[in-house]
Design a protein around this nucleic acid. Sequence first.
DNA 1: TTGTACGCGTTATCAC
DNA 2: GTGATAACGCGTACAA
Lengths: 334, 334
Amino acid sequence: MEKRAVTIKDVARRVGVSVSTVSRVLNHSSYVSPETEQLVLNAIEELHFAPNQIARGFVNKKTSTIGLIIPDVSNPFFSDVARGVEDYAIIDGFGTILCNSDWRSEREAMYLDLLRGRWVEGVIIVGSRSSAADLTRAIGSVPYVLVERLMVGSGPSVWTDNRRGGALATSHLYERGWRTFAHISGPPDSPSATERRKGFLDGMRRESVTAYEIFEGDYRVQSGLDIGQRIFARGKAPEGIFAANDLMAIGVMQAAAQAGVRIPEDVAVIGYDNIAPTDYTSPSLTTIDQPGYEMGRAALSILLKRLHEPHTATAEHIEFEPRLMARNSTRKAT
Amino acid sequence: MEKRAVTIKDVARRVGVSVSTVSRVLNHSSYVSPETEQLVLNAIEELHFAPNQIARGFVNKKTSTIGLIIPDVSNPFFSDVARGVEDYAIIDGFGTILCNSDWRSEREAMYLDLLRGRWVEGVIIVGSRSSAADLTRAIGSVPYVLVERLMVGSGPSVWTDNRRGGALATSHLYERGWRTFAHISGPPDSPSATERRKGFLDGMRRESVTAYEIFEGDYRVQSGLDIGQRIFARGKAPEGIFAANDLMAIGVMQAAAQAGVRIPEDVAVIGYDNIAPTDYTSPSLTTIDQPGYEMGRAALSILLKRLHEPHTATAEHIEFEPRLMARNSTRKAT
DNA sequence: TTGTACGCGTTATCAC
DNA sequence: GTGATAACGCGTACAA
């Protein structure tokens, strides 16, 4: 702290050239004689010099930093997204400021302010539940990409067709022969949850099923557990349960184990997201795959494209296909 | 983007005062007559002016940004640490730049360069496997805190006594009555892995057990699965298996399920870390708790203290107690 | 009480 | 090929 960080001046002095020359070898902005270039490179190495991005951004208004707002890194799906963003951001020399919003609109807005103050070049916002108006206002003029959230104006976004995914899950249960159903939905203000629920209803309608119930969860293990306990405490449980995400599905499986309900012999369970732990559960959990890592990567690529070509106003939208991952929790024992 | 942001100059011109006056009302750094102050405030409001944090940090060398280098956010233990750091950093207005090193020394060094370039005020480095020399060199003069990694010079750090944790796990297996053991260690260049392994050997020695084997894993599920398959393919499996982290323990449990080996009836398994999924496995996984969230928080508090009081050279060290979380994977069926 | 001038680290634009 | 210098937005001694 006390000792001043090494600057371009130190390097210049060390080699005995001007700062401009050092700057030139740093940016390859103009020809420099091979010998001096080598000298400069050596000095940079020896002094352990790293150009001050702050000052750099000060000049050409580029901070090489982006913001990433996700609800919660502790959630495996979002940590996958984060990893996808970060892995590819670094390739282009971008640093990523991580923000956990806890799905709260105010925190999102607060972080957006913080990010704007740091002059991030762009922002990736994942799973926002803010109203379109709030979100637009908070974003301001910062280039952005939305993930798992669509906006009416159809801004740039990355999305999987959650409605189709929900229908996929439901059809799978039906095709395997189950005839009474329950859906444990996510929180009502979550766009993905709403769509998955619609998908469930689509499935019910298509197969003309009327024997179904919907419970409202909050995407966390505990709510799956609670609802599962309620379901299994009653006399007749539904044959097939579609939880709107894997964490709640895991909660349901725990409740089943406690209640002595066997999966999949007595009840089939399907989740959503395909987070890593679904492979470890016993039985392994059938789920709908949503490729978090690739989605993060895609979001970043859209954002970078926007930054490099600010004038193409096309709001790019990348959509991923939900995929069924059939595992043992829905295996028909026939 | 196109339109130049409004600066302090614009405000000054608007009111007809100097920039310093505006600066003064912004920072309350000195007295300003109430009338001019009001005028300035009005202008700020009208022009929708927000001070440029970059320029501000440029002047007083405070970026209000820290760096966090972890091996991999996708790993639940590290994402917990990240959450702990971030949650408390934001309270003091600090942004956190997230970096995934994949345990690789070069990536760590590269990120450190990137962070230094962004003039982060400090860095938290988690689970580094770099040599002390490399690490010291890469860090340079940036204030830092190490988590799950000790340095000979005993810099500031957050740590749990992994050796004791390893011994704890081993003793637990012994006390529950198992008499032949296997340890699946982490990668040999990982300090925590080495310590846990020592703890295992401590336990073996104390109980005078000679019937044990050590397998070398890499902290990932797959290696637990592979090693588990090797173990169960042979005739006689050890009675108690201590995996150096939960992910490998989960792999072992999968291998057991495949091989028809029952847990805990035939083989007991204990992990390390107490990541969330250990609660979902079937049977639930006994493990040693390492409080990632609190460790992250502690690391941040040490770092902030260093930043606020740069002169107190005391290298603070916070140590957490490993705790046994006894669950069903080691329940003796007696 | 308020204004002037300088510096922070870097790049771009001129000269040489 | 290389060097000197203005400029970026803001804070702060120092001057008035």
